[in-house]
Structure formats: C-alpha cells, structure tokens
C-alpha cells in the first residue's frame, strides 16, 4: 500500500486499493468455483477411475448440453433483473411441435426443416409474448412467465391429444444428438455454439451492454437513451428461442415427443446461473459463469452416481456439497443473492 509522508493514504492510492479489491473479488469467485470443479473431478476420479474416462467425458458433455443452452437464455433474462420461469412449458410445446411435424409414428407427414423452423418459431412466439406482457402491460416477469409455463404445457397437452406417444421414425433425426462429431456429441456442439453466441452478444454488442445497463439501473438506462422495452422483448424472445432449441434436442434425445420433456430443467438452470455468479437482481454476471455453474452441477450429479452413493443420500449430499462450494467460492460476493426485481 502506498503512503505519503504524513502517514495518511493518498486518494490515488485509496482508489488503486479499492480497484485491486474489486478486481480480486471479480476473479476470486470464478477461480474458486473452477478450483471446486477440479477438486470434485479429482475426488470422483479416485472414487471411480471410470469417471475420468472418455466415455464419461462424452456423457458429461451430453448431459450438460441442455442446461447450457437454456442457461444462456436464463442468464440474459436474469441480467436484466427479470426471471423466466416458462422454460419447461416452451420446451414441451416446441419439442412436441418438432416431433409431430417430423416423420413420426403417428403420421407419415414429414416437413423436414420446416418442422425445425416451426418449433423454433413456437419458442420465439412464447418468448415475445413474455416480453410484450412484461414491458407493455407492466406485469412482473415472475408472474408472466409462471403463467406462460402453464400456457406452454397446456398447448403441448393439446398438441399431444389422447393418442399414443409419437415416436421419431427417422433414425438420422433420432440419433442426431448423440452422434459424435470431432469426438463430442452433437448436442454438446450445439450448446458450445449457443454459449459462444451468448458471450459475443453480451460482451461485444450494444444489446449486451444495454442488458447490463438495464440490470444495473433501469431508470438511468432509460434516461440515457437505451430502448429498454425493445431490449427486454428481444431478450425474452431469445430466451424463448433457446428453450425451444433445448426442447427439440430433448425430444431428439428421447426419440419421442412428450409435453413433459422439459421436466426438471428449470430447477437445474436457475441454480446453475446463480451458482455461476450471476446476480438475481441483474447487472452482474455472465454466460461463462453460468457455464461454470452448469458444469459444476453436472459433474456433481454424475460423479455421485459413479461413486456409488445411495440414491437415498444423493440429493442431500449433492445439496450439502453445493452449499459448501458456494460458501467457499462466493463468500466475497454473497451480496449478489438479492431478491429479483
């Protein structure tokens, strides 16, 4: 620390000190999470050498794919200071729309790429509706997206009808997600592509900077000329699109369509975003941090099974390890867990 002759701290030295502290805090948390991740990998590898095998690495990639894709959308929404709970409903609708419009056991009609586009459009429409209601009707995102979750599930249930399970009949489609490209499953490459786009959007585009500004202080952002409503609608539409992508991949993974294909996704994704270090209040965090959170959760769940932990203890143990990891990694920034706007 730099002192002047009188023994008092100069303003410039004080600023430098604060700046160092902020930088340290910025680095400390992801570093600690990465350290925790490596510690888990080492422990699980010792407990079962198959954990570190190529096969399990592919497993981990495949299992992380969906939360990574959804996590990017969820991160953008949370950075705004909002929340998107409609993930599972949109996944169900989009996944089922894709299966029913592709070659399936219920009908011979196969719309090929149009099926994909229709499913993606389904997600965008749900996302747009979320954004429009939040911005124009001024209803909190928690309420709107909670409602849209069930609207999505209802839509999927209507699509499903009362007939038998629609099964994808084109083997090329139903095996796409697990097919290896450069040694990794396609689902993982799709997730990597989405994460890279998310990072670029957030760091290099005006939209990304606007998202952070809105999350930090919406009033100042609006007064400084940022078109807040337009950004919010865009982000919700993007989140809807990514939920649809996840729904389609989930349906392909199962080889069949079901309204409940996204079941449980929300409660992996939101914790992963928060564990990664994105503030629920908005304005702080990022896509790579979410990716770190997703990897931590995926490794934990996979590792506990490979380590032979009894199912009766697995949830409890996973929760305890997570709490310990967060206390260790995020002590310096525990103020981020403020209530969402």
């Amino acid at each position: 620390m730099a002192n002047n002759n009188s023994g008092t701290i100069s303003p410039s030295a004080n600023t430098a000190s604060i700046s160092n502290r902020i930088n340290w805090r910025r680095l400390a948390e992801p570093s600690a999470l990465i350290a925790t991740l490596f510690a888990l990998i080492i422990i699980f590898s010792i407990l079962n050498p198959r954990f570190a095998s190529v096969e399990n690495l592919r497993n981990l990639m495949d299992q992380a794919a969906l939360p990574l894709i959804i996590g990017v959308g969820a991160t953008l929404v949370i950075l705004l200071g909002s929340i998107d709970l409609s993930i599972e409903g949109i996944m169900g609708s989009a996944g089922l729309a894709f299966v029913l419009l592709s070659a399936n056991s219920r009908s011979e009609s196969d719309f090929g790429l149009l099926a994909l586009l229709a499913a993606l459009l389904t997600g965008i429409i749900f996302g747009l509706l979320n954004g429009l209601i939040v911005t124009k009707v001024k209803v909190p995102s928690f309420v709107v997206t909670l409602g849209m979750w069930f609207v999505g599930l209802g839509f999927a249930t209507v699509l499903y009808g009362t007939e038998t399970i629609p099964v994808l009949t084109n083997p090329e489609v139903s095996s796409w997600s697990s097919t290896l490209t450069f040694g990794a499953p396609n689902s993982f490459w799709a997730a990597v592509f989405v994460v890279i786009l998310g990072v670029i959007t957030l760091i290099l585009t005006k939209t990304g900077r606007s998202i952070m500004a809105i999350g930090n202080n919406e009033v100042i952002a609006r007064n400084s000329g940022i078109r807040v409503d337009r950004i919010k609608i865009t982000v919700f539409a993007l989140a809807g699109l990514l939920s649809a992508v996840a729904g389609i991949i989930a349906a392909i993974k199962l080889g069949s369509g079901s309204p409940s294909v996204g079941l449980g996704s929300l409660f992996i994704t939101i914790p992963a975003v928060v564990i990664g270090g994105t503030a629920l209040a908005g304005g702080k965090g990022g896509v790579l941090r979410t990716a770190l959170g997703v990897l931590l959760l995926t490794v934990l769940n996979n590792g506990l099974i490979l380590a032979g932990v009894s199912p009766s203890f697995q949830s409890g143990l996973a929760g305890a390890i997570l709490i310990a990891a967060i206390v260790f990694a995020a002590w310096s920034q525990r103020d981020r867990l403020r209530i969402a706007k």
């Binding site: 095998s53 495949d62 993974k253 449980g264 099974i305 032979g308 199912p311």
Partner: peptide, 22 residues
C-alpha cells in the same frame, strides 16, 4: 445398481447414461 428415475423417461435416459459409464 438401483437408481430411482421418477417415472420420467428423460431422467431414466440420464441415469442409464451414468450407469453405462459406470
């Protein structure tokens, strides 16, 4: 190994993946 999969095809898929590795 006995892994409860909650009547959920997706969870059964994931648990099977882990057990195949194991």
């Amino acid at each position: 190994d006995v892994r409860p999969s909650d009547w959920d095809p997706e969870l059964a898929y994931k648990n099977s993946q882990d057990l195949i590795t194991k």
